[in-house]
Design a protein around this nucleic acid. Structure first.
Lengths: 233, 233
DNA sequence: ACTTTGCGTCAATGCTGTTGACATAAGGAC
DNA sequence: GTCCTTATGTCAACAGCATTGACGCAAAGT
């Protein structure tokens, strides 16, 4: 009778090409595949080919492709949050968390775009939520409020990061065309029909840049103002 | 020699089932299909079946499915902002704008999720930016500041709306699994390893709900506090 | 009535995820 | 060292997907 836990792998049988498969290796290869050839390059068949195994072998490690996708997403979270330790200043700590998540997404823009709105329900996500909720509790918010405010915070961070990642994942041609729109199409508008846009014409170029930091900072200002103990106006 | 523009259709030949196809009819039917049978119901084959025509007939009207999705997205934008008139209260007006965008996205989540990060450079977008920037100018912000704050605002709205839309666009199975994670996987965590999560255990269920309104309201509070003429703390 | 051609239809291609049967080798028991 | 169990890699097959090229009908223009 086997004494080991059933999910613990006991045997490691090499594939025809000699590779030893593992969840780790599969998620790494998938991430590399997406990074090199774009998100549409991720299919069970291509992943199998990249690993040197039969496509169906992957189903020994993941229930289906969604399961694999969640594993990839959780790995991105883990990489982004690796080594992060919250400090005494909860606002500054949340800010660093936001910047880390964004950096992690931008490091794998094409994978991030696929997974930003999912709940991975895996260890790295557990830890991140624990950290974020803990920071808001330490700020003095009551549990129900801390949870909702954390959700507003992390959704803003994740969705903004996904936006940036999606833009970065666009083909160069298309991205440049989008950026040029602000200095071309928007400069040629009829002043009578678009008075506000005309009066800010010189500033429209900055619409091509990310608003991530401003949006996060605005949100953190609002959070800080609502924290218990903060001097109300 | 034909005098008509080449893109203008001259002949309307009915399909085998007697339907007269058109771009309008196809986008309408696609939206209805998504609305009635969920986002995964939209495939060229099913759309063809719903229209009573061969799937390949659609390629006479759209270059590919992406082209079709963009046509649908354009229609969503127009519908969402139709009839919107900004009022005297700039904060309330921005708020209504946000809610309209979100409603438009949620009404057609699949199409919205795929098109949210594209810059349309079309009239509906021009008008929306004009309106939004105009509201911030009316609040007293200087041009450069108004543009950047509008960007932070609209990116928050769009990315959050896209997040909600993407969740709604998930297959029922996956969406339910993601929601259940908060009442199952997150309830079973080790209290010693996850003290913060344990102390807010009862409230975690609310993580499955959207944070759109809270995030937008927090942002608007921060914007209002930064407006010229606002009493500083 | 005749010609042109827009466009609906059919058939085929090569993708996709997923599954069940099968084979083989790893590892424990003795 | 031998045997047995079983984890796991492989193979074949299925259904559904977007897309395309050839074909031919019927509607519009003359």
């Amino acid at each position: 009778m086997p004494t080991r836990a059933p999910q613990q792998r006991r045997r490691r049988r090499p594939t025809a090409s000699g590779v030893l498969l593992s969840k780790e290796l599969i998620t790494e290869t998938a991430l590399r595949l997406i990074g090199e050839h774009g998100p549409e390059a991720l299919s069970v068949r291509r992943l199998g080919a990249a690993l040197g195994c039969d496509p169906s072998a992957l189903y020994r490690y993941f229930r289906n492709t969604d399961d694999l996708l969640l594993a990839i997403a959780d790995r991105i979270i883990g990489d982004a949050m690796a080594g992060f330790v919250p400090g005494p200043d909860w606002v500054a700590s949340l800010r660093e968390m936001a910047m880390r998540v964004r950096a992690g997404y931008l490091a794998h823009p094409r994978a991030a775009a696929m997974a930003s709105y999912r709940v991975t329900r895996r260890e790295n996500e557990f830890r991140a939520v624990e950290t974020g909720v803990g920071l808001l509790l330490s700020a003095g918010f009551a549990p129900a409020r801390a949870v909702r405010l954390y959700l507003a915070f992390i959704d803003t961070v994740l969705s903004h990061a996904a936006l940036d990642a999606a833009c970065q994942a666009l083909p160069r041609e298309q991205r440049e065309a989008d950026e040029q729109a602000w200095t071309e199409a928007y400069q040629a508008l009829d002043p009578a029909a678009y008075p506000a846009l005309t009066s800010v014409r010189e500033e429209l170029r900055s619409m091509a840049d990310s608003s991530f930091e401003e949006a996060v900072d605005l949100l953190l200002v609002a959070l800080a103002a609502r924290a218990p103990g903060h001097a109300e106006t």
